[in-house]
């Protein structure tokens, strides 16, 4: 098992290398001279030249890339052009809120979507199945910001149950932290819940037709035992896959959600960085997200082997 995980980690290295190359090239793919781009519209040629030299842009591409990778491997993501702060420190400040939002959304999704999908499959074709799937279609079709503003209007402004916007760190107490995250997590989770519920239903329907479910019934097992002990674990592989893929959705969604609910997270930092053309920050964030995504995929593969003994490692 350990050697399997190690082998998988080694296998992710080329992926990370390609991602790094791509991220680094961002600056060059963008039209124009990077130094001119960074210096901005009103810079004099001397300014541009100064930036070029200070960033080492006059050296060959691969040399630049090599030294960039070298610095990253030592934990140095560079310095923000706009704030002159280290990129790693800027990301570190913003990591907490985004991570909180993603974890709460993920848990909310699993807790809500999987049981909904199971019930829909169990009662396939019934009214309750149609209602659940109807909500799923609804959840798919609504953009995050629409749901976000609607939720904020109803539950924060009208009913005054929850705060409208903002973020409180976990260090200031669990409830204040959670209170601020409920609405953003629901808004962000909508599409995700719909997706996972649908996949759960489909996977469960498939499994419920298998011979071993009939065997479980023949043994006299109760409905709960059949659904959750025998069926759900067999349906887990596609469900886990989609939850993993969904994390990519979350990353994109977090950017929008954080704007709507004024959460000082990475999403906001990303938007600000893009608007200011703060390339080192953009690079750092994209690199981080890619790394998270590769890590998630690795975790999914490990979960597969835990769920299904037939998958060899």
């Amino acid at each position: 098992m350990l050697s399997y995980i190690l082998r998988r980690i080694v296998a992710t290295l080329p992926v990370m290398a390609i991602v790094a190359l791509f991220v680094f090239s961002l600056l060059y793919i963008a039209p124009g001279d990077p130094a001119v781009v960074i210096a901005g519209d009103q810079a004099s040629p001397e300014d541009v030249e100064r930036i070029r030299q200070s960033l080492g842009l006059d050296r060959p591409f691969l040399v630049q890339f090599g030294s960039w990778v070298w610095r990253i491997l030592h934990g140095d993501l560079g310095t923000s052009i706009f704030t002159n702060l280290p990129v790693s420190a800027m990301i570190g400040q913003r990591l907490g809120p985004t991570l909180s939002l993603m974890i709460v959304t993920l848990l909310l999704t699993i807790v809500v979507a999987v049981p909904l999908g199971v019930v829909a499959a169990w009662k396939a074709g019934s009214l309750i199945d149609r209602v659940i799937m109807g909500f799923a279609v609804f959840g798919f079709s609504l953009p995050v910001f629409v749901v976000g503003y609607m939720l904020a209007y109803i539950f924060a402004l009208e009913l005054e149950w929850l705060p409208v916007q903002g973020y409180t760190p976990l260090t200031q107490g669990f409830w204040p932290w959670l209170e601020n995250l409920i609405l953003p997590a629901v808004a962000l989770g909508c599409v995700y819940i719909a997706l996972v519920a649908r996949i759960t239903r489909a996977a469960m329907l498939e499994v419920l037709q298998q011979d071993y479910i009939r065997t479980a019934k023949a043994k006299g097992l109760g409905q709960g035992g059949i659904l959750f002990i025998h069926a759900l674990k067999n349906a887990a592989v596609p469900i886990v896959t989609v939850i993993g893929i969904g994390i990519a959705l979350l990353i994109g969604g977090a950017v929008v959600t954080e704007s709507v609910f004024a959460i000082p997270g990475l999403g906001r930092l990303t938007i600000d960085a893009i608007l200011r053309r703060d390339y080192p920050v953009i690079q750092g964030i994209v690199l981080l997200f890619s790394f998270v995504y590769v890590l998630v995929n690795l975790m999914i593969d490990v979960v597969y082997t835990l769920v299904d003994p037939r998958i060899r490692y």
Binding site: Y212, T215, H230
Partner: peptide
Amino acid sequence: QGAAMSMIFQNPRAALNPIR
């Protein structure tokens, strides 16, 4: 079911839960 009366099936491998 399974107590007073039980059943075995064709294709025994499919009749057993593959991951249990």
